[in-house]
Design a binder for these strands. Sequence first.
DNA 1: CATGAATGAGGTTTCATTCAT
DNA 2: TATGAATGAAACCTCATTCAT
Lengths: 216, 216, 216, 216
Amino acid sequence: MNATHAKGLMPRKTPRQARSVVTVDAIFEATIQVLLSHGLQRLTTTRVADRAGVSVGTLYQYYPNKQSLLYAVLGHHLDRVVESVEQACGRHHHEPLAMMVPPLIQAYVDAKTARLDEANALNLVAAELNSADLIAQASKRVRSAILSMLATASDARFDDLNIVSFMVHAAMAGPTRSALESGAPSKILRALHEHLTMLCHAYLSRVAIPDGIEQR
Amino acid sequence: MNATHAKGLMPRKTPRQARSVVTVDAIFEATIQVLLSHGLQRLTTTRVADRAGVSVGTLYQYYPNKQSLLYAVLGHHLDRVVESVEQACGRHHHEPLAMMVPPLIQAYVDAKTARLDEANALNLVAAELNSADLIAQASKRVRSAILSMLATASDARFDDLNIVSFMVHAAMAGPTRSALESGAPSKILRALHEHLTMLCHAYLSRVAIPDGIEQR
Amino acid sequence: MNATHAKGLMPRKTPRQARSVVTVDAIFEATIQVLLSHGLQRLTTTRVADRAGVSVGTLYQYYPNKQSLLYAVLGHHLDRVVESVEQACGRHHHEPLAMMVPPLIQAYVDAKTARLDEANALNLVAAELNSADLIAQASKRVRSAILSMLATASDARFDDLNIVSFMVHAAMAGPTRSALESGAPSKILRALHEHLTMLCHAYLSRVAIPDGIEQR
Amino acid sequence: MNATHAKGLMPRKTPRQARSVVTVDAIFEATIQVLLSHGLQRLTTTRVADRAGVSVGTLYQYYPNKQSLLYAVLGHHLDRVVESVEQACGRHHHEPLAMMVPPLIQAYVDAKTARLDEANALNLVAAELNSADLIAQASKRVRSAILSMLATASDARFDDLNIVSFMVHAAMAGPTRSALESGAPSKILRALHEHLTMLCHAYLSRVAIPDGIEQR
DNA sequence: CATGAATGAGGTTTCATTCAT
DNA sequence: TATGAATGAAACCTCATTCAT
């Protein structure tokens, strides 16, 4: 989302020439690779530049400092997840709960699992101070998407959609994160999908306000 | 718990003399304070020692390096949470689900919320490299406690208790963490308890093997 | 004046085409502006080029390195002052001291004060390594001009004109520089002219070999 | 004077233990030596530390950054000059001008010439941005000392002592600085003393208000 | 000719850790 | 045992300069 107006966290220049685009992409990819191979603590701007096959100086022409680089990478990752969820939600407005939950889970877990290692590595980055706002932004968008969808459920109404969407999001994120962090034991990872669906659907059914007349 | 077999992560000596105990406690407390006031990145051993009112040298007499200090502090925190959950679970064996879930949630959330800022700060530490095993250990114990309790539920049986207890734990941890990280908006924090209970209970009811009549 | 024999301090080419002249002027002006806005430490060739509206590459087509650029700008400034003094001195040969001093002061102070900020900024440049020779050259020319003039004074003779002209020059330069550096307190700046005249004239009268009667 | 309240320009700690004093002195001396041998541009904290026979880290235990080190050294130098002038002035209150000027000149020139190279090197440091306040402080004290002395002159009164003392100070500083910078040609350096005395005394005599009755 | 992306040596600063006192 | 001065590897970042386009 990169809504950070903070001092020097924005990229320095968005490359317009062909050669620059290649460079920036290489840096981007290298960042993730170093994150995976060395961990956040050992991620050095020099190391990233080396891995990207450019010089440190080049890296600093695009990102004013290390943080801004991590921000960009993290932001990109979050954007992917968020957009995926937004689209999934958008496609299932006005349907019954039972039709909403599975695609939502699917989109979320898939986006997180797509590049499993990357997501895992970025969890660490996210924990790094000052990315709180990025996370907050992303969470907010996810909650909004969920909220909008739930508001149109054909077979349920909710008392406080803010809390409900917060819970649904967090209920998806918790187990997903746990699974990823615990080295993703394959057995659980395979079952994750199914159980997350049950978790969320059961919760939503429980908190839904029994719908007066049509209920019958 | 400190189940770390790694090189030098064990504290150097367990203080037995009164004076030493005071020192260690001071270092412990100072670590958390520095964590809160400066953040993990700016937590330096010198700063911790200063805050604790001892010299760096003294600090290094109790912990062979910075990591071991953070391990100890994090371990202590996790132990508190784990033990709290273990006791809560232990007290409700052989009861029906509806009697199990609320005390479990209560214990978990309370332990996490007790010293809210501390928990928050330690989340960052936990994310830091190599504490994966500590987290894993703690998670494992929590899951075990939950599993043991659920296995005795008077009104439900479960197909795969490993997955179920994993999910219950993660379903508690996710929203709790989210709430803590997002600066704990009071409204949600107040509702957290209630909704977590619904979340977990609804889930458990759903995955339980219906054994109504045949149960007898 | 650029009497530097050092390696690569000469400008690369003296522009003869209209377009080039404009470019060089722009670079010149940009250098002074950057000097004023960022200070010598933060004056970078890229910044100068940006401000001048050209690319770094272009800048390096006219000046082989940063120093040569600063040399050129400083030299230009010094030339202006020197020429101004030379002309003033040239116009007052063979006159009595009282007629010589005021125009000299006038020329010097005016030249320095003309673009006050510029002079101030260039003081810093001058202090920078290796411009010693430029300063020396300029000083020498000023002293020569003063010496030549004083040698023809109609009402005074001097024992050691080298020292006397050195002193007159330095006596003008000291207070002028002090006034400029101290942020030019307007009150003093206004009085500077008058007091410098008194300072120099009083000194010259004192060191002159009294040749009243015997002069004849 | 170190009246700088700016962020990090104050030394970090004033050494109290014997070993520290030695270290700080070594750093101090090394700074001047590096200044002389390499020039301000080439003065690196590493180089200073090397020359001082300590590690960079040690240097940074006493000075939070490079500037603060230079500040300290410059401040020390200025203090010496200022105090010297203050004492000289203090000793000659209530005397006639002719008795005041020579000791003043003596003190000023001697202090500057005492460690000729040091003074020369520090001129460069002084030109470095942000030391303006240090210079200003020192100048102010010198002017005050001169002003106080002149105010008590037994044979002269002055209209605007602020301007007069400003001029006297600058008139001393200009030629002294010129002489130092120009590599101190011995001949002039020897004559400097005598001519400065004449310069200042002639000036003061000229601007003094003819003292009514006693004047006769 | 002009451009500006790329270079990389070199500078400043931090901080975990040791060890003489 | 406690102290805190000293260490120095290693991190971040800048900027003069080049050269392919």
